[in-house]
Design a protein around this nucleic acid. Structure first.
Lengths: 174, 174
DNA sequence: TTAAGTGCAAAAGTTTTGCACCAAG
DNA sequence: CTTGGTGCAAAACTTTTGCACTTAA
């Protein structure tokens, strides 16, 4: 977990500055319940709700910066746009399964994957920042309903709906 | 490799139709050299160059459809927008390493990853469509130049530049 | 002090959609 | 025939940028 001080140190070492905006944003991600990700827009709305509004441009710039620094991971789940979460090593490092039909997302742990990533990166003489295994699959409900067609474009299985409700209930509306 | 006939069968089974546009698009992906990916826009330009223009809306709709069908894989590499390639099982199934600094992309094979994905999917009672391990790393040149800061926003290491030139030379301009 | 960071508004892209027409099955 | 697909143009979004003003170091 990053303190404001270590963030400052890391930024300053590169000629960058610690600003209140950057501190707040990192804090939000640090307090995000496991398994929740935020898009630029989610983050903006959340900040607004908390009365700490930060301009969208700054949000975009900060997300990009922190991703490049290796502090955040950029998730590309399903067709929804980019989401971010904290980039942590063990014990929270995890991967995702996404339903190709309804975008439902499940997290899972798997230490073998990280080991393989380390192996590959060493082979290419690179420095590892993050690795994400994204599995695209179809959930049983979607299969039953006749994947991959038949259903309307914005059909979502009940699991996906629950997950979405749960996200809002857990986090965005408090 | 999909023939026009098997594509037709798969589409028809779901109440969809085989159109010349869909056939051409699938064919393009089938003939794409290994390691090349196309964005919607690349595909559009390529088709135009070949004199088989297809409207951008149709391209977007087709890419989405084929991804949902499991025919294409949607790649989310670096900060560049979505790219697509054929979704193949062995021997062409592969994964990507992306430089967080310059977006250079390297492909690699690793059969362990697919095995892990199958394990995870079975555990959740899902049906596998695709799995992609994306490794974010920093290339040596970027490290030397002082990653993650100092360099300008659109700095790219020489490897990235070469890779980009190579793509154009290999494929887009012929 | 001074260079980096922010917010705003505008611009640049990318992706989606409504609708009339076309064509596959 | 009938229903799904296409192309076009417009709309909707998301993300980036130029610029004047702040502010961290």
């Amino acid at each position: 977990m990053y303190s404001a001080n270590s963030l400052k140190a890391e930024l300053n070492a590169k000629g960058w500055r610690l600003t209140p905006q950057r501190e707040v944003i990192l804090q939000i991600f640090q307090n995000l319940p496991r398994g929740k990700h935020l898009s630029a827009d989610d983050l903006s709305k959340l900040l607004e709700k908390r009365g700490e509004e930060i301009s969208l441009s700054t949000i975009y710039r900060t997300l990009k910066l922190m991703t490049r620094m290796g502090l955040l991971r950029e998730l590309e789940l399903a067709e929804i746009h980019k989401h971010y979460e904290l980039n942590t090593t063990s014990p929270n490092h995890h991967h995702h399964i996404v339903c190709a039909q309804c975008n439902m997302t499940i997290e899972f742990d798997n230490s073998t994957i990280l080991k393989q990533a380390i192996k590959q990166v060493e082979k290419s003489h690179l420095e590892l920042i993050d690795c994400q295994l994204t599995i695209y699959a179809v959930c049983p409900e979607a299969i039953r309903k006749g994947f991959p067609a038949i259903m309307s474009e914005n059909w979502a299985c009940s699991r996906a709906k629950n997950a979405k409700d749960k996200l809002e209930q857990d986090f965005l509306s408090n």
